[in-house]
Design a protein around this nucleic acid. Sequence first.
DNA 1: TGACTTGATTTTGTATTCATAATTCATAAT
DNA 2: ATTATGAATTATGAATACAAAATCAAGTCA
Lengths: 227, 227
Amino acid sequence: MDAAELSDRHLIVRRSLHDEITSRLRNLITDGDLQPGEKVQEAELCLRFGVSRTPLREALKALAAEGLVVLQPNRGATVARITAADIDELFPIIGALEALAGELACARIGSGEIAALRRDHYRMVKHYKRGEWAGYIKLNRAIHDAIFAAAGNAALTQLYQQMLVRTHSVRFVAKKSAPRWQEAVEDHEKMMAALEKRDGKALAKILTVHLQHKADMVREAMDALDK
Amino acid sequence: MDAAELSDRHLIVRRSLHDEITSRLRNLITDGDLQPGEKVQEAELCLRFGVSRTPLREALKALAAEGLVVLQPNRGATVARITAADIDELFPIIGALEALAGELACARIGSGEIAALRRDHYRMVKHYKRGEWAGYIKLNRAIHDAIFAAAGNAALTQLYQQMLVRTHSVRFVAKKSAPRWQEAVEDHEKMMAALEKRDGKALAKILTVHLQHKADMVREAMDALDK
DNA sequence: TGACTTGATTTTGTATTCATAATTCATAAT
DNA sequence: ATTATGAATTATGAATACAAAATCAAGTCA
């Protein structure tokens, strides 16, 4: 038994089964193994996870509370679908959360953290210039996460993550529409500038607009898929 | 069978037990029948509700996802406590949600709704002047709810309600500290003015500050209780 | 052919059971 | 008297069992 295992045993860790299942189910959904609108087959998943229906159904109740699945009485659970109306509702909320995070971050972030963010930003821009979408996305996500971390508000971060998960299915349908991608990179450049000036109001404003742009991008992509 | 009952049967309504229990448990908590930190006794509540442990435990999982109860592995559920740190985290979030709601409301609200709000506002001020706390609170709540309703963003409203529920135990500990109460009424007067001008930016700003004031008020009250 | 029954099968919701972990309480040791 | 120790009790977590609802499919009738 190594140190980690030992400390694990003595600290928290003994997650209950339903908690474990909740995470794994959530991952199945965000990874796209379970598609939006798809029925959640209890029996099949019980087999897959090697557990009984009890903890699985408890997990479904928790995910329903998070808005990731919808429960229909006597008709089981399905993976939540994101509609155009949901985009209109959720992205402004995410924007408001990011704006708050940005403002808090400006007040608390250290210069070392800003420098690290600037380095990530440059690396992200490099990926953009090379047209490397995956690498770009990864750093993009890291930058937004870092702003939330710098904000030092755990509840805010948790809420943000929850909203991201709820919108996972549409956040990257957009792929790389050239003008929208450029717009996003420009937004990020402005974000860095505001952060380096520690101008919380400015950063908040930019993040709000940035999320409006993201919503526009997603709407365009959804329209393109529909037709 | 009357019309309402009939349409009920054919529309949504047949709530599953766990859903019903979730609501009732939530009410027990917000009504203070179950105090923060108190253990949630499964057996006792099963008896009380006349159901088995299964739906009750499902309800607990959902309420845990909402942050209303905390589950400790093998040690059951307790009603979540709100700490001073939680105030610092949650109230700014509520402020951001209210700010967004205010901005959206300014863009969408009709003049009739504004007039109704103004009437509620006057009635609220009347309660304030008479020192009638209960009546004041009720209208205060109605006004904030009306702003969210006018915003026309169901997800935003739901998130707001969830945050209100999470902070229920401290939102009115403050009772009526005279200067804070006056401050709140002044905030509301400014809110009405901004709304009547449909000045979304201004209303957002006022609501953010209003929630900061509320947080201050709660912190003062908590400090007073601690000593 | 096509819509509607009706019965079999599956799925869901809830209760019950069982194993295990935590708590309590009585007893013993310091 | 106070703190350990351990058996008895209770509570919790998970699996299973059972009842009710929904789905599916074959057959009936227009």
